[in-house]
Protein backbone atom coordinates (compact mmCIF):
# COMPACT_ATOMS: atom_id res chain seq x y z
CA UNK A 1 0.00 0.00 0.00
CA UNK A 2 1.63 3.23 -1.17
CA UNK A 3 0.76 6.39 0.72
CA UNK A 4 3.14 9.25 -0.02
CA UNK A 5 2.37 10.84 3.34
CA UNK A 6 3.06 7.68 5.35
CA UNK A 7 5.94 7.71 7.82
CA UNK A 8 9.38 7.26 6.25
CA UNK A 9 10.59 4.23 8.18
CA UNK A 10 13.85 3.46 6.45
CA UNK A 11 15.93 5.91 4.48
CA UNK A 12 19.01 4.37 2.90
CA UNK A 13 21.21 6.88 1.14
CA UNK A 14 24.33 6.16 -0.95
CA UNK A 15 25.25 3.24 1.30
CA UNK A 16 28.70 1.74 0.81
CA UNK A 17 29.97 -1.29 2.73
CA UNK A 18 32.93 -3.66 2.63
CA UNK A 19 33.72 -7.08 3.94
CA UNK A 20 37.37 -7.93 4.55
CA UNK A 21 38.27 -4.67 2.74
CA UNK A 22 36.39 -5.85 -0.34
CA UNK A 23 33.75 -3.27 -1.34
CA UNK A 24 30.39 -5.01 -1.80
CA UNK A 25 27.74 -2.30 -1.47
CA UNK A 26 28.50 0.60 -3.78
CA UNK A 27 25.87 3.25 -3.28
CA UNK A 28 22.51 1.76 -2.31
CA UNK A 29 19.54 4.16 -2.22
CA UNK A 30 16.19 2.99 -0.90
CA UNK A 31 13.29 4.59 0.92
CA UNK A 32 10.69 2.53 2.70
CA UNK A 33 7.49 4.05 4.06
CA UNK A 34 4.95 2.57 6.44
CA UNK A 35 2.54 0.19 4.75
CA UNK A 36 4.86 -0.66 1.86
CA UNK A 37 6.11 -3.99 0.65
CA UNK A 38 9.36 -3.96 -1.31
CA UNK A 39 10.78 -6.89 -3.24
CA UNK A 40 14.53 -6.97 -3.83
CA UNK A 41 15.71 -9.26 -6.60
CA UNK A 42 18.96 -9.72 -8.47
CA UNK A 43 21.59 -12.21 -9.40
CA UNK A 44 23.46 -14.38 -6.95
CA UNK A 45 26.25 -12.37 -5.38
CA UNK A 46 24.77 -8.99 -6.24
CA UNK A 47 24.76 -7.88 -2.60
CA UNK A 48 21.23 -8.54 -1.37
CA UNK A 49 22.19 -10.45 1.78
CA UNK A 50 25.01 -8.02 2.39
CA UNK A 51 22.51 -5.17 2.42
CA UNK A 52 20.29 -7.03 4.86
CA UNK A 53 23.19 -7.81 7.21
CA UNK A 54 24.47 -4.26 7.12
CA UNK A 55 21.00 -3.08 8.10
CA UNK A 56 20.91 -5.56 10.98
CA UNK A 57 24.45 -4.61 12.08
CA UNK A 58 26.55 -7.70 11.37
CA UNK A 59 30.06 -7.04 12.76
CA UNK A 60 31.88 -8.48 9.71
CA UNK A 61 30.50 -5.76 7.41
CA UNK A 62 32.03 -2.31 7.59
CA UNK A 63 30.07 0.69 6.41
CA UNK A 64 32.41 2.89 4.37
CA UNK A 65 30.01 5.59 3.25
CA UNK A 66 26.45 6.86 3.11
CA UNK A 67 23.78 6.73 5.77
CA UNK A 68 20.77 4.80 7.00
CA UNK A 69 18.04 6.50 8.99
CA UNK A 70 15.43 4.49 10.80
CA UNK A 71 12.39 6.57 11.73
CA UNK A 72 14.56 9.64 11.46
CA UNK A 73 17.46 8.40 13.62
CA UNK A 74 20.88 7.12 12.60
CA UNK A 75 20.59 3.32 12.48
CA UNK A 76 24.24 2.55 11.84
CA UNK A 77 25.56 3.64 15.25
CA UNK A 78 23.27 1.21 17.05
CA UNK A 79 24.30 -2.25 18.24
CA UNK A 80 22.52 -5.14 16.51
CA UNK A 81 20.48 -5.86 19.64
CA UNK A 82 19.35 -2.23 19.88
CA UNK A 83 18.18 -2.30 16.28
CA UNK A 84 16.19 -5.44 16.97
CA UNK A 85 14.63 -3.98 20.10
CA UNK A 86 13.58 -0.90 18.14
CA UNK A 87 11.77 -3.04 15.60
CA UNK A 88 14.20 -3.90 12.79
CA UNK A 89 13.95 -7.59 11.98
CA UNK A 90 16.10 -9.72 9.71
CA UNK A 91 14.85 -13.13 8.64
CA UNK A 92 18.06 -14.91 7.73
CA UNK A 93 18.77 -16.65 4.44
CA UNK A 94 20.74 -19.22 6.44
CA UNK A 95 19.58 -19.31 10.09
CA UNK A 96 22.38 -20.72 12.27
CA UNK A 97 22.04 -23.56 14.75
CA UNK A 98 22.73 -22.81 18.40
CA UNK A 99 23.20 -26.06 20.32
CA UNK A 100 22.38 -26.09 24.01
CA UNK A 101 20.20 -22.97 23.95
CA UNK A 102 16.55 -23.88 24.24
CA UNK A 103 14.39 -22.44 21.49
CA UNK A 104 11.64 -21.57 23.97
CA UNK A 105 14.01 -19.74 26.32
CA UNK A 106 15.64 -17.94 23.39
CA UNK A 107 12.27 -16.81 22.07
CA UNK A 108 11.21 -15.65 25.51
CA UNK A 109 14.34 -13.62 26.17
CA UNK A 110 14.20 -11.96 22.77
CA UNK A 111 10.48 -11.27 22.98
CA UNK A 112 10.92 -9.67 26.38
CA UNK A 113 13.83 -7.55 25.17
CA UNK A 114 11.58 -6.13 22.46
CA UNK A 115 8.61 -5.75 24.80
CA UNK A 116 10.66 -3.86 27.33
CA UNK A 117 11.66 -1.33 24.66
CA UNK A 118 8.01 -0.93 23.73
CA UNK A 119 7.07 -0.31 27.35
CA UNK A 120 5.16 -3.59 27.62
CA UNK A 121 5.43 -5.82 30.64
CA UNK A 122 7.76 -8.79 30.70
CA UNK A 123 6.17 -12.19 30.12
CA UNK A 124 7.07 -14.85 32.66
CA UNK A 125 7.57 -18.46 31.63
CA UNK A 126 3.88 -19.33 31.95
CA UNK A 127 2.46 -16.27 30.20
CA UNK A 128 5.02 -16.70 27.49
CA UNK A 129 4.00 -20.32 26.89
CA UNK A 130 0.45 -19.15 26.19
CA UNK A 131 1.66 -16.27 24.07
CA UNK A 132 3.97 -18.39 21.94
CA UNK A 133 1.33 -21.07 21.40
CA UNK A 134 -0.94 -18.40 19.98
CA UNK A 135 1.76 -17.24 17.60
CA UNK A 136 2.70 -20.75 16.55
CA UNK A 137 -0.61 -20.87 14.72
CA UNK A 138 0.53 -18.12 12.38
CA UNK A 139 3.15 -20.47 10.94
CA UNK A 140 1.33 -23.73 11.78
CA UNK A 141 4.37 -24.97 13.65
CA UNK A 142 4.40 -27.95 16.01
CA UNK A 143 4.99 -26.90 19.65
CA UNK A 144 7.58 -29.68 19.85
CA UNK A 145 10.02 -27.32 18.14
CA UNK A 146 9.98 -25.14 21.24
CA UNK A 147 11.67 -27.82 23.31
CA UNK A 148 14.60 -28.23 20.95
CA UNK A 149 17.79 -26.19 20.75
CA UNK A 150 17.59 -23.14 18.51
CA UNK A 151 17.41 -24.40 14.91
CA UNK A 152 19.43 -27.49 15.81
CA UNK A 153 18.64 -30.30 13.43
CA UNK A 154 15.75 -28.32 11.94
CA UNK A 155 15.15 -28.97 8.25
CA UNK A 156 15.68 -26.05 5.88
CA UNK A 157 11.97 -25.30 5.77
CA UNK A 158 11.57 -25.65 9.55
CA UNK A 159 14.31 -23.09 10.09
CA UNK A 160 12.48 -20.65 7.85
CA UNK A 161 9.24 -21.16 9.75
CA UNK A 162 11.10 -20.56 12.98
CA UNK A 163 12.25 -17.23 11.51
CA UNK A 164 8.67 -16.21 10.79
CA UNK A 165 7.67 -17.34 14.28
CA UNK A 166 10.30 -14.95 15.63
CA UNK A 167 8.89 -12.23 13.42
CA UNK A 168 5.42 -12.93 14.80
CA UNK A 169 6.73 -12.66 18.36
CA UNK A 170 8.88 -9.57 17.90
CA UNK A 171 6.23 -7.62 16.00
CA UNK A 172 8.81 -5.65 14.04
CA UNK A 173 8.27 -2.33 12.32
CA UNK A 174 10.56 -3.11 9.40
CA UNK A 175 11.05 -6.75 8.39
CA UNK A 176 13.76 -7.78 5.98
CA UNK A 177 13.13 -11.34 4.87
CA UNK A 178 16.15 -12.75 3.07
CA UNK A 179 15.01 -15.57 0.80
CA UNK A 180 12.54 -16.84 3.35
CA UNK A 181 10.85 -18.63 0.43
CA UNK A 182 13.91 -20.63 -0.64
CA UNK A 183 13.75 -24.25 0.37
CA UNK A 184 10.06 -24.20 1.26
CA UNK A 185 7.68 -26.75 -0.16
CA UNK A 186 4.55 -25.45 -1.86
CA UNK A 187 2.34 -25.70 1.21
CA UNK A 188 4.96 -24.20 3.49
CA UNK A 189 5.44 -21.30 1.09
CA UNK A 190 1.74 -20.54 1.31
CA UNK A 191 1.77 -20.79 5.09
CA UNK A 192 4.77 -18.51 5.42
CA UNK A 193 3.33 -16.02 2.93
CA UNK A 194 0.00 -15.94 4.73
CA UNK A 195 1.92 -15.45 7.99
CA UNK A 196 3.72 -12.44 6.55
CA UNK A 197 0.45 -11.05 5.22
CA UNK A 198 -1.22 -11.46 8.63
CA UNK A 199 1.63 -9.61 10.28
CA UNK A 200 1.61 -6.72 7.80
CA UNK A 201 -0.16 -3.53 8.77
CA UNK A 202 -0.35 0.10 7.64
CA UNK A 203 2.22 0.94 10.34
CA UNK A 204 4.85 -1.59 9.26
CA UNK A 205 6.84 -2.39 6.14
CA UNK A 206 8.61 -5.40 4.64
CA UNK A 207 11.54 -5.92 2.35
CA UNK A 208 11.34 -9.31 0.68
CA UNK A 209 14.54 -10.59 -0.87
CA UNK A 210 13.61 -13.30 -3.33
CA UNK A 211 14.46 -14.97 -6.59
CA UNK A 212 10.98 -16.20 -7.39
CA UNK A 213 7.72 -14.82 -8.63
CA UNK A 214 5.92 -17.51 -6.69
CA UNK A 215 6.31 -15.65 -3.38
CA UNK A 216 5.19 -12.43 -5.02
CA UNK A 217 2.02 -14.15 -6.22
CA UNK A 218 1.17 -14.60 -2.54
CA UNK A 219 2.51 -11.30 -1.19
CA UNK A 220 1.92 -8.46 -3.57
CA UNK A 221 4.82 -6.01 -3.62
CA UNK A 222 4.37 -2.28 -4.07
CA UNK A 223 7.88 -1.95 -5.47
CA UNK A 224 10.33 -4.32 -7.11
CA UNK A 225 14.04 -3.47 -7.07
CA UNK A 226 16.82 -5.15 -8.99
CA UNK A 227 20.23 -5.17 -7.33
CA UNK A 228 23.43 -5.49 -9.32
CA UNK A 229 27.06 -4.93 -8.38
CA UNK A 230 26.12 -3.57 -4.97
CA UNK A 231 23.53 -1.02 -6.10
CA UNK A 232 19.87 -0.86 -6.94
CA UNK A 233 19.97 -0.72 -10.71
CA UNK A 234 16.31 -0.54 -11.50
CA UNK A 235 13.04 -0.03 -9.64
CA UNK A 236 9.54 -0.74 -10.84
CA UNK A 237 6.14 -1.98 -9.75
CA UNK A 238 5.01 -5.59 -9.38
CA UNK A 239 5.08 -5.98 -13.18
CA UNK A 240 8.89 -5.70 -13.13
CA UNK A 241 9.10 -9.06 -11.38
CA UNK A 242 6.93 -10.64 -14.06
CA UNK A 243 9.10 -9.07 -16.74
CA UNK A 244 12.27 -10.47 -15.12
CA UNK A 245 10.71 -13.95 -15.29
CA UNK A 246 10.68 -13.46 -19.06
CA UNK A 247 13.90 -11.64 -19.81
CA UNK A 248 16.28 -12.70 -17.01
CA UNK A 249 19.27 -10.55 -16.10
CA UNK A 250 21.24 -10.22 -19.34
CA UNK A 251 20.28 -6.57 -19.67
CA UNK A 252 22.02 -5.92 -16.37
CA UNK A 253 25.48 -6.31 -17.93
CA UNK A 254 24.63 -3.93 -20.75
CA UNK A 255 23.32 -1.32 -18.39
CA UNK A 256 26.33 -1.65 -16.06
CA UNK A 257 28.68 -1.36 -19.05
CA UNK A 258 26.79 1.69 -20.29
CA UNK A 259 27.22 3.26 -16.85
CA UNK A 260 30.92 2.48 -16.89
CA UNK A 261 30.75 -0.20 -14.16
CA UNK A 262 32.54 -3.36 -15.18
Amino acid sequence: MIRPDAELLLDISDLHASVEDQPILKGVNLQVRAGEIHAVMGRNGSGKSTLSKVLAGHPAYRVTGGSVRYRGDDLLTLEPEQRARLGVFLGFQYPVEIPGVSNLEFLRVSTNARRETQGQEELDTFDFEDHVRERLKVVQMDPAFLDRSVNQGFSGGEKKRNEILQMALLEPVVSILDETDSGLDIDALRIVASGVNQLSSPETASILITHYQRLLDEITPDYVHVMAAGRILRTGGRELALELEQIGYDWVDEQLAAEGVV
Binding site: F92, V109, S110
Partner: peptide, 25 residues
Protein backbone atom coordinates in the same frame (compact mmCIF):
# COMPACT_ATOMS: atom_id res chain seq x y z
CA UNK B 1 30.45 -14.73 15.27
CA UNK B 2 27.38 -15.72 13.27
CA UNK B 3 25.79 -17.47 16.24
CA UNK B 4 26.33 -14.44 18.44
CA UNK B 5 25.03 -12.15 15.72
CA UNK B 6 21.94 -14.29 15.36
CA UNK B 7 21.13 -13.91 19.06
CA UNK B 8 21.96 -10.20 19.00
CA UNK B 9 19.74 -9.62 15.99
CA UNK B 10 16.89 -10.83 18.18
CA UNK B 11 17.53 -8.19 20.80
CA UNK B 12 19.82 -10.19 23.08
CA UNK B 13 22.92 -8.28 24.26
CA UNK B 14 26.38 -9.55 23.36
CA UNK B 15 27.43 -10.63 26.86
CA UNK B 16 24.09 -12.28 27.48
CA UNK B 17 24.37 -14.06 24.15
CA UNK B 18 27.77 -15.48 25.14
CA UNK B 19 26.55 -16.52 28.53
CA UNK B 20 23.43 -18.13 27.07
CA UNK B 21 25.58 -20.26 24.81
CA UNK B 22 28.04 -21.12 27.54
CA UNK B 23 25.40 -22.04 30.08
CA UNK B 24 23.60 -24.06 27.45
CA UNK B 25 26.84 -25.91 26.92
Amino acid sequence: EDQLFYLQSRGIGFEEAVSMMVSGF
